[in-house]
Design a binder for these strands. Structure first.
Length: 860
RNA sequence: GCCCUAGUGGCGGAAUGGUAGACGCGGCAGACUCAAAAUCUGUUGUUCGCAAGAACGUGCUGGUUCGAGUCCGGCCUGGGGCACCA
């Protein structure tokens, strides 16, 4: 007796075995024919996949399988972004060695990913924490150093004085260390930097060629790079030969200047602090704000008068005060600004607080010069200059040019392009990362580790029983001889920022097993760029910009030919779930909540009331998580994958619901039943097409072929939810047809055509079910190796159209007319419709708009 | 604070400036069943109406247009990023 239920667990495991045995997804060393490189952002091996991974990897797999079916040579690899802080936290909190913890996590996550039936070429798997990976980036770093793309400078870090460690921004909570609770200080450390700013112009102009990137990501990167044109201008100090250089984008407002503000880390501030206790205290206070821009910008704007004054460049005899202010960044521009309170809100707030003059110099159109005054809001819009001597009467852009010309003529400054982008600091004072291949010699300085001594391996015999970097405490590791003079020297104990590993892994996947080089040039040139990159929007700036830079730097050093690593980018939204709180206020897991008989939410064990919170991104801290492993074990991977695709478009956040997964599960079973237990006996596969079809069969065929064309188009545009809706419509129609049209001409043949089409269309989304249906229908080939179906163009055209008839923009009737009917005919038919006649009540319409094949609007 | 982004039925969403709500979820009614589950059928934006139908309706507000969810201006609310989480 045939089973009347789909045995998901058995079927999914079986097809996964078949794919693996036949190496269906293995890519050749080089592509033969048109290539398509699909890459999903590789995961940090936390030990368990979460729904965000399920979503990300399902999206990538659909793209990969669809392209494969369309005849592309697809490269679809997976690996592990295996260095990072959580491994060290696990070591500190649970005493597990980061290497052991990471490798075990990788093994566990690999099994979970495999259970999803993803079409990866697992033979290319990489883990960035292994020396056979990171040795190559040590070499790249040294090549960058030779090429002048690396330098060393002092830079600020968050310092926890109790733990004697550097803290990440996320480890600083309200100005205190997350573990110690101690007030965090800023400290200067000597660190390595990569010259990303050397490529500012190129990184900016390259954005315009990334036409398959989301517009918003390009805008975010553009703002991040932050090109601005302005003036560098020296303000001479009174009673001193010295000056303060400021950068401004508003030289037009110079006549409204009422103060100069310098960063707390400006050399002049440091010098004054030596003898000015109040200033020293203020600088110390600024150092407690932390290093993040958000913290600085949201802190109250404060300043201290230095007592110094500067001379105005245009107004003879006018002097203005110099403040040290907490909102001026040393890293941006020159570390000093001038303030024009009338035309900048922050400057205005500052001026009000410290009683500084507010002198308007840009007059908005319509305002009178005599009466115009600034109250609570600065005037930042356009206008015409006044109160400004030689600039009077000019527009803002004219005044900028004129002010710059005058300053240049006076020799006080120059027109400059300033960038917001800062060089990339890659040093981290951490153990679980790639060692920086440098040796510090007291006589020779910082010396690169000779290439033949690479890799500098991370020692595994370390202990975490005292705070700080274990590499510093290691008894022997850092002690070496200088490669240059042979004298006693020490290894660099800092490791690379983990963005370093993720900045070139896409190239490593092109030849993941090369031993002496990071990747073979011909393989990288053949496979790159990644045709479609898929990952979270949270990487819009840093990871994606660093990768773009790194690829350029590699090109500069002769490693590869492409400059842009990712030709197409899809940024997926987060997976959210509603939150639950118990009556005592603690967060609850979804499985701890149930409905009581009266429909109220209650705690499963205690029966106490549960409060439903709003839906938020799934996170362990709020406990609003659903474990994918549990879902896959219960409903199968295809159900989880279908749900990930069906409800929301990929860029948007997705709301995980129990009922949504139920709906997907029902569909999986419906499609299986429709194929395994059809009401019509199906003809054998490859049965010849009948000569004629009943009207009903013909219209089903037309639907089948319109669905093929539509789904293909949807998948190309990543509109997976629409593709799913279309396939459901088609299977709904097949299901009705199967139940009702037993005798029509060609009915059984059309049903088979529909079922085969359904299997092929769902193939990228639900690959196991698709294989199962394909084999039930008598095929001995693998669906994963079957070509994408082709729509018959003759079945795609409709010969009648429905036209809406509006009166004054409101729908009043619809009519059916032959496609491409002449407008006059359509207009006269429309005006004869009873509803239209009665609304017009005998009066002639004032105007009739006819849009062919769409709509008629009667203006009454 | 700055940059980016979203807002449409009870819910997720669909809609080249041209019939708002495809498809799914949930609800309601029914079939099957001793019963339940599963499955299947019908119905379902809101209000008024016996009905035909009408009015209202895409966060709020103003505008452009024969016609606006879609374009433009202002506002409100939610989300992402802000350089050491990845």
């Amino acid at each position: 007796m045939a089973d009347d239920r789909y045995n998901v667990g058995e079927a999914e495991a079986r097809w996964q075995r078949v794919w693996e045995q036949k190496q269906v997804f293995k890519a050749g060393r080089l592509p033969n024919g048109p290539k398509y490189y699909v890459l999903e952002m590789f995961p940090y091996p936390s030990g368990k996949i979460h729904m965000g991974h399920v979503r990300n990897y399902t999206l990538g797999d659909v793209v990969a399988r669809h392209r494969r079916a369309k005849g592309y040579d697809v490269l679809h690899p997976m690996g592990w972004d295996a260095f990072g802080l959580p491994a060290e936290n696990a070591a500190i909190e649970r005493g597990v060695h980061p290497a052991k913890w990471t490798r075990e996590n990788i093994a566990a996550m690999r099994e979970q990913l495999k259970s999803m039936g993803l079409s990866y070429d697992w033979s290319r798997e990489i883990a960035t924490c292994e020396p056979d990976y990171y040795r190559h980036e040590q070499k790249m770093f040294l090549d960058f150093l030779k090429a002048g793309l690396v330098y060393r400078k002092e830079s600020w870090v968050n310092w926890d004085p109790e733990e004697n460690t550097v803290l990440a921004n996320e480890q600083v909570i309200d100005g205190r260390g997350w573990r110690s609770g101690a007030l965090v200080e800023k400290r200067l450390l000597s660190q390595w930097f990569l010259k990303i700013t050397q490529f500012s112009e190129d990184l900016l102009s390259g954005l315009s060629g990334l036409d398959r990137w989301p517009e918003r990501v390009r805008v975010m990167q553009e703002n991040w790079i932050g090109r601005s044109e302005g003036l560098r201008l020296k303000w001479a100090l009174t009673n001193s030969e010295d000056h303060i250089e400021v950068f401004t984008t508003r030289p037009d407002t110079l006549f409204g200047a009422s103060f100069v503000a310098i960063s707390a880390h400006h050399p002049i501030a440091s010098r004054l602090a030596a003898t000015n206790a109040r200033l020293a205290d203020f600088i110390a206070e600024c150092d407690r704000i932390g290093t993040s821009e958000a913290a600085m910008e949201t802190a109250e704007k404060l300043g201290v008068d230095t007592g110094l004054t500067v001379r105005h460049p245009f107004i003879e005899g006018r002097v203005i005060p110099v403040y040290v202010a907490n909102f001026v960044l040393m890293e941006y521009g020159t570390g000093a600004v001038f303030g024009c309170p009338a035309h900048d809100q922050r400057d205005l707030d500052f001026a009000r607080k410290y009683g500084l003059e507010v002198r308007p110099v840009v007059l908005p159109s319509g305002a009178a010069p005599a009466t115009f005054a600034i109250e609570a809001e600065a005037h930042t819009e356009d206008g015409v200059l006044f109160n400004s001597d030689f600039l009077n009467g000019l527009t803002v852009p004219e005044a900028k040019a004129a002010a710059i010309a005058k300053i240049e003529a006076q020799g006080l400054g120059t027109k400059t392009v300033n960038w917001r982008l800062r060089d990339w600091g890659v040093s981290r004072q951490r153990y679980w990362g790639c060692p920086i291949p440098i040796i510090h010699c007291p006589t020779c300085g910082a010396i690169p580790v000779p290439a033949e001594h690479l890799p500098v391996k991370l020692p595994e015999d370390v202990s975490f029983d005292r705070p700080g970097n274990p590499l510093v405490h290691h008894p022997t590791w850092k002690h070496v001889n200088c490669p240059q003079c042979g004298g006693k020297a020490e290894r660099e104990t800092d490791t690379f920022d983990t963005f370093f590993e993720s900045s070139w892994y896409f190239a490593r996947f092109c030849s993941p097993h090369s031993e002496d080089i990071g990747f073979e040039r011909d393989a990288a040139d053949a496979w790159l760029p990644v045709d479609q990159y898929i990952g979270g929007i949270e990487h819009a700036v840093l990871h994606l910009l660093y990768s773009r830079f790194f690829t350029r730097a590699l090109k500069h050093c002769g490693y590869l030919t492409v400059a842009e690593p990712f030709a197409g980018l899809l940024t997926q939204g987060m997976v959210c779930h509603e939150t639950f709180k118990s009556d005592t206020g603690g967060w609850l897991y979804p499985e701890e909540v149930t409905k009581s008989d009266d429909g109220a939410l209650v705690h499963v064990e205690t029966g106490t009331k549960v409060v439903r919170g709003r839906s938020e991104k799934m996170s362990k801290s709020k406990r609003n998580v659903v474990d994918p492993a549990h879902i896959i074990a219960t409903y199968g991977a295809d159900t989880a994958r279908l749900f990930m695709l069906s409800d929301s478009p990929p860029e948007r956040d997705l709301e995980w619901t129990e009922s949504g997964i139920d709906g997907a599960w029902r569909y999986v079973n419906r499609l299986w039943r429709l194929s395994a237990l059809p009401a019509l006996p199906l003809p054998p596969k490859d049965a010849p097409m009948p000569d004629s079809f009943s009207g009903r069969a013909q219209s089903i065929r037309s639907l089948i072929h319109r669905t093929i064309a539509g789904v293909d188009d949807d998948l190309d545009k990543f509109q997976f939810n629409k593709a799913v809706a279309r396939i459901r419509e088609m299977t709904n129609a097949l299901s009705d047809f199967n139940g009702s049209d037993k005798d029509g001409d060609g009915a059984a043949w059309v049903l088979r055509e529909g079922l085969e089409t359904a299997a092929r269309l769902v193939g990228p989304m639900m690959p196991h079910l698709a294989e199962e249906v394909w084999s039930i229908l008598g095929h001995e080939t693998l669906l994963a190796q079957t070509a994408w179906p082709k729509a018959d163009p003759s079945l795609l055209v409709d010969d009648t159209v429905t036209i809406a008839i509006q009166v004054n923009g409101k729908l009043r009737a619809t009519i059916q007319v032959p496609k491409d009917s002449p407008s006059e005919t359509v207009e006269s038919v429309a005006l004869q419709q009873p509803q239209i006649v009665s609304i017009l009540a005998g009066k002639p319409p004032r105007k009739v708009v006819v849009v062919p094949n769409r709509i008629v609007n009667v203006v009454a």
